[in-house]
């Protein structure tokens, strides 16, 4: 283990393939020499070994220190949270799903958690039994129901096909992960709007002790986060190159900086075009390069045209590296480093 950092990744399930794809996009491609084995490499960071595990075991491996870093679902971290595990990056922007309270569609009188609290009382006082809740997330469910003023319920352990529990009759309601809601609808269940327990997506976790005591682990995390933040930032920007006829670089620069959309990250880069001759009015051609948020692209093009621009080209930005990875800065603050 000396001088090596073990990264645990999900071997199967909804976030397994998206995790490899995400890391690839971040410039952290994973190579798996033998598809039958549960180990891999990250060539961009040679000190990293990769271990493939079930999503829940990723959490346990990071908790017991076998792996120092891991990628798993935030719902798993919330449900089985371990003392020595810290969430390093909560929003990897894939693997989105919600842990929700869902009731039979036939319960047309139940529209929210207050209604459900009343149903729990009704079942207890009129039928002498507790409301039965089928779930594989007992800890999060218990906490949420208590916070919603529901104290009388029995958790029914269920593995798979939880959605069928109210139909089969061994539970009244369910708490389960929902991505699109199709499975719920097919089983005649409806989620309660205020019954969202966890808004989950893939997250990067780490072993707190290792991060505090092992400099190489912390340095590896910094490099991974630089890539992740840069890649996720990059998705929102494009690089525009435009030729502009103007009096001088200063005049064009001042005109573009005056508009936030064309001000770029630090300001536009402006260079004279080689061989261009001054026009009769004294103006010359310059090439301007600037970074523009994708969502502001139409406005940016309009501003550049008004400034005398033409031949505008756009290429997507893959990475935007800031002065420091914001997620790494937040991690240092959380660890009081």
């Amino acid at each position: 283990m000396a001088n090596r950092v073990m990264l645990a990744l999900p071997s199967k399930g909804a976030i397994a393939e998206p995790t490899l794809s995400f890391l690839n996009d971040c410039g952290l491609k994973i190579e798996k020499p033998n598809p039958r084995q549960y180990v891999g490499l990250m060539p961009a960071l040679p000190q990293v070994d990769v271990l493939f595990q079930r999503a829940i075991d990723v959490l346990y491996k990071v908790s017991d220190g076998t792996a120092r870093l891991g990628v798993t679902g935030y719902d798993i971290v919330q449900e089985y949270g371990q003392d020595d595990v810290i969430v390093i990056h909560k929003d990897l922007r894939y693997g989105h799903c919600n842990l929700v309270v869902a009731v039979p569609e036939a319960w047309i009188d139940v529209e929210n958690m207050v209604d459900l609290a009343e149903i729990a009382l009704d079942l207890r006082e009129r039928k002498g039994r507790q409301m039965r809740v089928a779930t594989t997330y007992p800890n999060s469910t218990r906490r949420f129901l208590h916070a919603s003023g529901i104290h009388h319920f029995t958790l029914v352990n269920a593995e798979g096909a939880i959605e069928a529990a109210p139909t089969i009759g061994y539970a009244d309601i369910i708490v389960d992960l929902v991505q699109t809601g199709t499975t719920l609808r097919e089983n005649h269940l409806k989620p309660l709007p205020d019954g969202v327990i966890i808004e989950s997506q893939a997250c990067l976790i780490g072993n707190k002790s290792a991060l505090l005591m092992d400099e190489m682990t912390l340095e590896t995390v910094r490099m991974i986060l630089e890539q992740m933040d840069a890649s996720m930032n990059g998705r929102g920007y494009s690089q525009l190159t435009v030729n502009i006829l103007g009096e001088s670089a200063e005049q064009i620069g001042a005109q573009l900086i005056a508009e936030p959309v064309t001000a770029g990250l630090q300001g536009p880069t402006i260079a004279p075009i080689y061989g261009s001759k001054a026009q009769a009015d004294g103006r010359k051609w310059f090439t301007v390069t600037l970074i523009v948020p994708n969502k502001a692209m139409p406005q940016a093009v309009e501003i550049l045209r008004r400034a005398g621009g033409s031949q505008i080209t756009s290429i997507p930005v893959r990475y935007v590296y800031l002065h420091e990875s914001p997620t790494f800065a937040a991690l240092k603050a959380a660890l009081a480093l």
Partner: peptide
């Protein structure tokens, strides 16, 4: 009428009459 038209069999241990009364 609405309840009768439902194809759902997921009743979660409550009867249609109970649901109606509470509604």
């Amino acid at each position: 009428t609405l309840l009768g038209s439902q194809q759902s069999t997921a009743m979660g241990g409550r009867t249609r009459e109970e649901i109606l009364a509470r509604l």
